[in-house]
Design a protein around this nucleic acid. Structure first.
Lengths: 184, 184
DNA sequence: CTATAATTTCTCAAAAGTGTGACATTGCAT
DNA sequence: ATGCAATGTCACACTTTTGAGAAATTATAG
């Protein structure tokens, strides 16, 4: 069984991902503990939300960086980044929302923002390389491709829950669709 | 200026789409009215949520049916369906969630469910036709294509808010990416 | 078995959110 | 300008959510 604190955080990410204002009772139920226990680990709602944020930041960031460093071949890097996003599951959508939501004030002084920037910069570089190699459509901006990337990740995460296909199979399907979408 | 009642509904759909338990104050703020005014149009939260649901059902359904009926050419139909989804904006994501969410009990007796089924059946038929014509990859199931469709729509809706590109331009980009993704 | 750490149960008070009545203000058609 | 309809302001009671104390229960290590 998972560590209680970790279980609370995972549950909270699940619940808050769909409903940030959901009562803490829901989070507690989802984690199979009492609300009282939850409050022993987290002083208040804000603290829990903050910790979730931090957990999302660090685990998505780590997954993305590992993917980027997995190879020198941009096509392999891009494929790994797609799979990394899918593996992050619901966290990935939150990660994006946290940095792109309309309420978010982007500030490069902030470490989280800086790291996010670094990841997107690397993504941008990968796309430029692929465009130079003629493997990616040069008429598509890397912004659009990033948006598409997110869309494919989220679709695949949704699909994982509603299909009989194996995880491996569906990931390959996602990659096939994605690379064709952005090919010249 | 939009009709107040309509504005409240649109605001509520926006807010509830991301956070179903959000305080009504947020909906009121978003609609630029007081909470008191909101309560003059909707007796309570449940009523507002129900009306939102109905509005989503009917407007998405209408948009989709119009798209399907826009042509006899399956490729044109598919393109229209994509644009229709984009035009529905945040409603489209909700529409899908309402019918595919894990809490939703699908019941063909229910008119909403039946209509949803009819739309998906039409979509399925269009894909099959395109596969027979060799315009769509036969190795992709129509389920996967439907998931992808949703992903592209949601990405595009997100992108609309964060780009300087014209709506027309971004829609064309979405269609170009989509059709390539599912081409043989 | 025993000590002790973690969790639950029950409780309660403070805070936030909800719905409404009474009246003031604004906007707009006549 | 007048009057009506829509909206805003403020005050209020009510409900739900929140956070925490105290004691009982359960699990766990030694």
């Amino acid at each position: 069984m998972m560590d209680t604190k970790t279980r609370i955080i995972e549950s909270a990410i699940e619940i808050f991902g769909e409903d940030l204002s959901a009562p803490l009772q829901k989070v507690a139920d989802n984690a199979d503990i009492t609300r009282r226990t939850l409050h022993r680990y987290f002083a208040d709602r804000n603290e829990l939300v903050a910790v979730c944020r931090q957990e999302i930041e660090s685990s998505c960031k780590k997954a993305m960086l590992t993917a980027i460093q997995s190879s020198n071949e941009p096509l392999v890097q891009l494929e790994s980044m797609l799979y990394a996003g899918i593996d992050c599951g619901s966290k990935y959508a939150l990660f994006k929302r946290l940095h792109q939501g309309e309420d978010h004030y982007h500030n490069p002084e902030n470490k989280n923002c800086a790291d996010y920037d670094a990841i997107f910069k690397a993504f941008h570089k990968i796309i430029i390389q692929l465009q130079k190699q003629g493997k990616v459509n040069s008429e598509m901006s890397s912004q659009w491709i990033q948006v598409l990337h997110r869309g494919i990740v989220e679709s695949t995460v949704h699909a994982k829950a509603h299909t009989t296909k194996s995880e491996e199979e569906i990931k390959k399907l996602a990659w096939a669709s994605y690379i064709k979408a952005i090919s010249p």
